[in-house]
Design a protein around this nucleic acid. Structure first.
Ligand SMILES: [Mn+2]
Ligand SMILES: [Mn+2]
Ligand SMILES: [Zn+2]
Ligand SMILES: [Zn+2]
Lengths: 164, 164
DNA sequence: AGTAATGTGAAATTGAATATCAAAAGCAGA
DNA sequence: TCTGCTTTTGATATTCAATTTCACATTACT
């Protein structure tokens, strides 16, 4: 009986946003433990606030958001903590054309690339398995071992095409 | 007779590196004229030296190369002149992961993407028509009009895989 | 509590891109 | 060739995000 309830709860957890959040908190705690990092109030707060965001946030973006409720937390801490999140595998650094590093959530095992509207800065995510395969073939042809790639399509979104 | 010789010479010219160089010098002169730019000793020198390079050069790279034979020429001039080359269509700016802008030669109508070795910084150029088509399809599916794209594959080249 | 190691926040530094500005050079006419 | 106007140059300053520094605070552990 107890066991069945536990399993149900677990499945439910991982299928909701709250579940994702718990999952990521756990992932970060495990990472911190494995690296011998100490647990601090600041990291907890920054993690909570990062997990509450839904877009691609810059350090500055997140810093301002954090400062709103916790004015004592400094820019450097937010900066360092976002780097940690990315090392821990729960965030990914992305560098688009505007020269500002942004962080986005990484969902376990998921990968995507970006369509960027240069008119309104909208970012659309996409995946294309065929392109990924072709990339591997190109790499293989040149004896390369690919670690990561960057594919960004810049242009105007439907709305900006009409307005512009 | 004269005409035939001229045609032969022209064909020959465009099939050699010297021909490319002449072609690009002409292209830049035409651009300069159309923009009302003045002809200067510095621009001639910088163009010559840029055309003599074969890799993807940063402003700093080219500046050092220029300074070696012409110590009087300043960084700002090299910087501005490379921008001009790119406006004139004979160079292209590329921004790889290391956050340093580089310039490469643009061959008429040609496009390519880059395979970058993070071990030795080697850069290999490639083209893949299928990938380009798939990109267009993705864009169309989202109502986007693509202006440019960036596709970079980062990893280790054959040599660095063995050494590393 | 005591101690050593780690984390924090304000400020400083870095590094590349770009702007500024006085002096030098190019250019069209006289 | 000289003149006067405009552009270009070169040294330097500025900008701006990323990153480092360091004195002080906090944590983990005994
Ligand atoms: Mn994304
Ligand atoms: Mn190239
Ligand atoms: Zn748009
Ligand atoms: Zn290599």
């Amino acid at each position: 009986m107890t066991t069945i309830i536990a399993v149900d709860t677990l499945i439910f957890m991982f299928n909701t946003e709250d579940g994702m959040i718990l999952e990521k908190k756990k992932a970060f705690n495990e990472f911190a433990q494995s690296k011998g990092l100490r647990s601090t109030r600041q990291r907890d707060i920054i993690l909570d606030i990062f997990l509450s965001t839904h877009q691609h946030v810059s350090v500055e973006d997140l810093y301002l958001k954090v400062k709103a409720s916790h004015p004592g937390i400094g820019y450097a801490t937010v900066y360092r903590t976002l780097k940690l999140f990315s090392e821990a595998g729960l965030a990914r650094e992305i560098l688009l054309h505007d020269g500002q590093t942004r962080y986005e959530h990484v969902l376990a095992g998921e990968h995507h690339d970006h369509l960027v509207c240069t008119g309104c800065n909208a970012i659309i995510e996409f995946e294309d398995e065929t392109i990924e395969k072709l990339q591997d073939e190109i790499a293989a042809r040149h004896g390369f071992l690919i670690r990561r790639h960057k594919l960004e399509l810049y242009g105007l979104c439907a709305r900006c095409r009409n307005i512009g």
